[in-house]
């Protein structure tokens, strides 16, 4: 269960000016739901994802995930929370372009110092699940946009998180690859993941797998 209670998020532009990205957001998402956050660029969708992932803290209000107030977590606990619970698929993938597919996908597990067999098992599972096994040793910068997204999805799932957050996942994809991504979403939902997609792509709004579409406009739920 994810709850956002009366969230206000302001960014300081300079000493005299602030930008209100979110203004009194209240949102509740149940476990296993697939929720689409709909809105134009700059509406505050990505900020909501960022707050749920504890990548930033709200100016006021609180974010609660599974009864844990993640918006109040100290820095290192927030990192642990992300590692154990969140798989984030960024709009620009945020991969390390000069590393191989394998190294990128394993990156979240590096600090955990797991046994090599465990790493191999996890790697094999996600690479096969997201059909990128054949590119395992390829350098990421040499991959196509669709392949890079699969790597980003594989990385987001390497630790089998309960929550998947996707920020504008189809912004850099053509129609065919966008449908392919929807197939991946179906698979994730089938596996019981809670999925939140922030997008302005109309492709997502009438999908039968979507449980809820939340429209954001200038930092407020419409």
């Amino acid at each position: 269960m994810i709850e956002l209670n009366n969230i206000i998020k302001k960014y300081e532009i300079n000493k005299n000016n602030t930008l209100t990205a979110l203004d009194g957001i209240n949102l509740s998402i149940k476990e296993g739901e697939l929720v689409v956050l709909k809105g134009a660029s700059g509406s505050g969708k990505s900020t909501i994802l960022s707050l749920i992932a504890a990548l930033s803290k709200p100016t006021s209000g609180e974010v609660v995930v599974d009864d844990k107030r993640v918006s109040k977590l100290p820095e290192n606990f927030a990192s642990d929370f992300r590692r154990d619970n969140i798989g984030f698929i960024f709009q620009k993938y945020n991969l390390i372009n000069t590393l191989s597919v394998k190294d990128n996908v394993l990156l979240p597990l590096v600090p955990m110092n797991l046994h090599v067999d465990v790493l191999e098992d996890k790697l094999k599972r996600v690479l096969e699940m997201f059909h990128i096994k054949h590119k395992e040793d390829a350098i990421v910068k040499n991959l196509s946009g669709g392949e890079q997204q699969r790597v980003a999805i594989a990385r987001a799932n390497i630790n089998d998180p309960k929550i998947i957050l996707a920020d504008e996942p189809t912004a850099n994809l053509d129609e065919k690859l966008s449908f392919s991504f929807i197939e991946i979403l179906k698979e994730l939902k089938r596996r019981g993941k809670t999925v939140i997609v922030a997008t302005h792509d109309p492709l997502f709004f009438n999908l039968d797998i979507v449980d809820k579409v939340v429209e954001i406009h200038q930092g407020v739920i419409s």
């Binding site: 820095e75 290192n76 990192s79 945020n94």
Partner: peptide
């Protein structure tokens, strides 16, 4: 800086 941001976003602690 971006790389550090990515590492933190995917669950690395400050001490990692």
């Amino acid at each position: 800086k971006r790389e550090i941001g990515i590492l933190k976003a995917i669950g690395w602690r400050v001490d990692d």
